[in-house]
């Protein structure tokens, strides 16, 4: 009883804290001055058509590095938690049905398209919406489909770990090259800028985002594999 009372008190407190804000604000007429600088300089200095990519990869690139590190830590934690379960929890009441003919044939048609689409998303991250995170997740969902269709029985952990650590190492190496050859850590301007709006433009931004895409894709595949197959 007292618990329910506390719940109601807490929710009313939160609501009375938050909902008066709704009346106080209105639509903004222009972006803040910091965002204005990012918008103008992201186009002029970096030649990035998608400014969100310029912010994620370069202006706030250190945050993205930390974020990828957190993702790695979470994936490592999940496989650590499930490590002891492989033998102990084998009283399976459910078993996986073998994949149907439709699923197997459909996966054979769809899998190459899904992987190519994922690579397309993260290579074109500086021109169109999308980028490393979205492309990586699309690749991970392709691997999920391959699990369902029986194309992959067991994830090759050596290969996935190699891709993940190589991508992470190259990410930091490209960031350090930015210090050495250009303005600072993760500055993409040490590669030729190219023509605005073409695939090979915006310096190292497509390279960095592709590395992020590979890293996120392998980490998400690792998470799915760990939570599926313990």
């Amino acid at each position: 009883m007292i618990k329910r009372f506390f719940t109601i008190i807490l929710m009313v407190f939160f609501a009375s804290l938050f909902f008066p804000l709704v009346g106080l604000i209105s639509d903004r007429d222009s972006v803040s001055s910091l965002a204005k600088d990012y918008l103008v300089q992201g186009r002029d200095d970096f030649g990035a058509a998608n400014i969100v990519t310029a912010v994620v990869v370069s202006y706030r690139g250190l945050d993205t590095l930390g974020e990828v590190t957190v993702l790695f830590a979470a994936a490592a934690g999940i496989s650590l938690v499930f490590k002891g379960l492989r033998n102990e929890g084998k009283d399976k009441k459910y078993r996986v049905n073998p994949p149907s003919e439709i699923l197997r044939t459909g996966a054979r048609v769809l899998l190459p398209l899904i992987f190519i689409f994922g690579v397309y998303i993260f290579i074109n991250g500086h021109l169109t919406p999308g980028g490393g995170f979205q492309g990586g997740v699309v690749i991970a969902s392709g691997i999920l489909l391959a699990f369902f269709a029986g194309n992959i029985k067991e994830l090759n952990h050596g290969f996935v770990t190699f891709i993940e650590s190589a991508a992470g190492f190259s990410y930091v190496a490209v960031g350090l090259l930015g210090i050495w050859l250009a303005g600072g850590f993760l500055d993409p301007r040490f590669l030729p800028m190219g023509e605005f709006g073409s695939l090979f433009s915006a310096g190292a931004i497509p390279v960095i985002y592709s590395l992020i895409g590979l890293k996120v894709g392998s980490e998400m595949s690792g998470i799915i594999d760990a939570i599926r197959s313990y």
Partner: peptide, 24 residues
């Protein structure tokens, strides 16, 4: 404004990782 978009982008990915950790 592109800055909140960039922040939400990373927050969603972290959200999945944290949810999966909680589930495990």
């Amino acid at each position: 404004d592109p800055i909140p978009s960039a922040l939400v982008l990373t927050a969603i990915v972290i959200g999945l990782a944290v949810t999966a950790l909680m589930l495990s």
